[in-house]
Amino acid sequence: MYLRPRSVPVGDRSHYGPVVYLRWSRSCLRPPPRMGFPPSLRIAYIKNYSENRVEYSKISPKVTPASSLVTLDLYGFKNMQRLSDGMEMLTKLEDLRLWNCHQLKELPSKLGDLGNLKQMRLNGCTELKELPSNFDQLSNLTSLIIYYCPILSAFPSNFGQLKKLEELQLYNYSGLQALPLDFGYLKNLEELQLYNYFELKALPSDFGHLKNLEELQLYNYSRLKVLPSDFGHLKNLEELQLYNCFGLKELPSDFGCLKNLRVLKLSGCSGLAELPSNFGQLKNLKKLDLEDCSRLEKWPLGFGDLTELKEIFLTGCSSTLKDLLPNNFKGNDSTVIGL
């Protein structure tokens, strides 16, 4: 936790002491003079709540190689089309967040020079068309979250070179038609969330190479029909959520190999006709959501042996499936919703 310094007039550098934290929100104030970061500044939150046009050039920080900035968070600069020159000089930057910068069309071409960047979030950058070609040089990046940047249509080449990436969340990346061919190279990826990619037809063939993946969420993949044949190689997968993937016809034959799976949500997978025959091998499964899986008519052999399974959701399922639910799930030790 960082302590806030005493109030310092923005743009008046004569007052700067060892400032480590700056929070500045513009509402009705006049734009300040173009300000520079004090050398000791580590965290900067700069927010614009005004409905008036504000030119980012009037408040964008003068960047110097001496900057100690670790976190830069910009919010609400709806008319900003590009970031300041010299961003690559922020060599200590670890966390970059851009919120509702609606007119931002490009990121700095030298973004890949930020060798210490660990976390990056882009939220509501609706005019951003692509990530820089040297994006793969962010060798220390561990978390990438992109929310509602709808015209981003592809990943940069060599995306799989982000060897330290642990978390990837992509929301409303609606132009995306395929994940990178080298996606399986993300060996340290632990959490993957993909929301509303209506054009995505398949996951990469080497998806099973993501040996450290613990959580996978896929939402609204209407054109996804099958999961990769090596899906069962995800030995560390603990949570799998497939929502409204109603084009999905079946689960992989090696699905029972997911020995660490604890939570399985298949809500809205209305095209799924049966569960795999080895489903009973999921001995650590604790929660199963089959809401609106209306085509399922029977339980696989061994389903009743899932002694750890305590929560089952069957709302919207066929009466046949409900009637065939093993009796040991109808006692006080289990919660069944939708019977």
Rank of each mutant, 00 (worst) to 15 (best):
L3N: 07
R4K: 03
R4S: 02
R4V: 02
R4W: 02
P5F: 00
P5H: 08
R6L: 11
S7L: 03
V8T: 12
V8A: 01
V8P: 00
V10I: 08
V10N: 00
V10A: 08
G11Y: 01
D12T: 02
D12I: 03
R13N: 02
R13W: 04
R13Y: 03
S14G: 02
S14H: 04
H15C: 10
H15W: 07
H15D: 05
G17V: 07
G17D: 05
P18Q: 12
P18H: 13
P18N: 12
P18M: 07
Y21S: 13
Y21V: 14
L22M: 14
L22S: 12
L22N: 05
W24V: 12
R26W: 04
C28Q: 12
L29M: 06
L29I: 06
R30A: 09
P31V: 08
P32H: 03
P33R: 00
P33V: 00
M35A: 09
G36W: 02
G36Q: 08
G36K: 08
G36H: 04
G36P: 04
F37C: 10
P38C: 08
P38F: 09
P38G: 10
R42M: 14
I43M: 12
I43Q: 08
Y45W: 14
Y45G: 10
Y45S: 12
K47W: 11
N48M: 06
Y49F: 06
Y49W: 07
S50K: 10
E51Y: 04
N52Y: 09
R53T: 11
V54N: 06
E55T: 06
Y56P: 05
Y56F: 15
Y56Q: 07
S57L: 09
K58G: 00
I59H: 02
S60G: 00
P61A: 01
P61F: 00
K62Q: 00
K62L: 02
K62I: 04
V63P: 04
V63I: 15
V63S: 05
V63N: 00
P65S: 09
P65Q: 11
A66P: 00
S67F: 01
L69D: 02
L69K: 02
L69E: 03
V70L: 14
L72Y: 06
L72V: 08
D73G: 05
L74S: 06
Y75M: 09
G76A: 13
F77R: 11
F77W: 15
K78V: 10
K78P: 06
K78H: 12
N79K: 13
M80E: 02
M80Q: 06
L83N: 07
L83R: 05
L83M: 11
S84W: 08
S84P: 10
S84T: 10
D85L: 04
G86M: 04
L90V: 13
T91Q: 15
T91F: 14
K92I: 05
K92G: 08
K92M: 10
L93F: 09
E94G: 15
E94D: 15
D95H: 14
D95M: 10
L96G: 01
L96H: 04
R97G: 15
R97M: 15
L98P: 03
W99F: 15
N100S: 10
C101N: 14
C101R: 12
H102R: 15
H102C: 11
Q103I: 11
K105S: 13
E106T: 12
P108D: 13
P108I: 13
S109P: 00
K110Q: 00
L111S: 03
G112S: 06
G112K: 04
D113S: 15
D113F: 13
D113K: 14
L114T: 05
L114A: 01
G115M: 13
N116E: 14
L117I: 15
